[in-house]
Computed example of a mutant assay.
Amino acid sequence: MRIYDFRGFANPARIRITVAEKRLSDLIEFVTVDVPGGEHRQPPFLAKNPSGTIPVLELDDGTMIAECTAITEYLDNVDGEAVLTGSDGKERAIIHMMQRRAESRLLDPVAAYFHHATPGLGPQIETYQNREWGEKNREVALEGMRYFDGLLRNQDYLAGDRFSMADITAFAGLLFADISKIDVPADLTGLRAWRTKVAERPSVMHA
């Protein structure tokens, strides 16, 4: 299998953590896509993913799987023992619910702020920017941090008592927030403690 990505970006980090959690590193070849240079917008890459986003998982039979949630679902079930996406209907539903909230209330708003209200990846890549929209999304991200802080004051992880895909997404969202210079407010002690705990996982330390 191959994974097309650019190391250091938030969404690629999500999949690298998943690969490490599942101990699949020996089965994966990582292929760098020069996103800052615009390679993701060129025909050869668009043939792999028409959305022009990374990461993309290429299976041995040539199948291309894009979108982090879909890639994580596949990788988590390669060995028949899902540990990141849920093992029964209820657990899967809760994890997917929290995964979506981690995207819509944290990761995606941070990305919108980065691409619209900062220089982002530079004028060659950021061909359209709406600063007002970017600043609004900064507010959404901060509200999301407060939501997750309240949740994590009463439970170990976003979807309950077990580390899951939702935690990976939220952690990546905070990594993106660092890059975008959106600080986690000091009074969000639940979120900060959770982040420290997740950062100590071997899969995260080496992602």
Rank of each mutant, 00 (worst) to 15 (best):
F176Q: 13
R192T: 08
R138L: 15
T169P: 00
R162I: 06
L142S: 02
N137C: 10
K136G: 05
P119T: 02
R195G: 04
E126H: 06
A186R: 10
E139K: 15
S164V: 06
P119F: 09
T196V: 07
A170C: 12
T169C: 00
N130H: 14
G134E: 06
G190L: 14
N130K: 12
M165A: 14
G144D: 01
G150M: 04
A177P: 05
N130A: 10
E139G: 11
I179H: 13
A166V: 04
A159G: 02
V184I: 15
L191H: 01
L121H: 12
L175I: 09
D161Y: 02
Y147F: 15
R195H: 14
R195A: 08
R131K: 15
A141V: 04
D183H: 06
L175T: 07
P185M: 01
I179K: 15
M145Q: 12
G173D: 04
N130I: 01
R162S: 13
L121M: 14
T169A: 05
I182Q: 09
R146K: 15
R162H: 11
G160W: 09
V140C: 00
Q129H: 13
F148A: 11
P185D: 01
D178G: 06
L191A: 04
E132T: 10
T127I: 14
L188M: 08
I168M: 03
M145K: 11
G122E: 03
I182L: 14
L191N: 07
N137D: 03
G134I: 11
I168A: 05
R192N: 09
E126V: 02
T196R: 12
E126G: 01
Q124R: 13
F171H: 10
E139N: 08
A186Y: 03
A159L: 03
M165K: 10
A159T: 00
A186L: 10
A186C: 00
A141G: 07
D183I: 02
N137K: 07
L175E: 14
F171P: 05
N154S: 13
L175W: 09
P119A: 07
L152R: 07
F176K: 13
W133E: 14
L191M: 03
T196C: 00
Y128E: 12
A193T: 07
E143T: 09
G160C: 11
L142A: 04
T127Y: 10
T127E: 12
Y128S: 12
G144A: 05
E139L: 15
P123F: 03
D161G: 13
G134W: 05
G120E: 01
Y128I: 09
L188I: 01
R162E: 12
K181A: 13
Y128M: 10
M165S: 14
E132W: 01
E135L: 15
V140W: 02
Y147E: 06
E139D: 12
E126A: 08
Y128H: 12
E139A: 14
L151H: 10
L175Y: 11
S180N: 07
I125W: 11
G190N: 11
R153F: 02
L158K: 01
Y147L: 14
V140D: 01
P185H: 03
N137S: 02
F176I: 00
S180T: 03
L191F: 11
G120L: 05
R192Q: 10
G150L: 02
R131N: 08
N137R: 06
V140F: 06
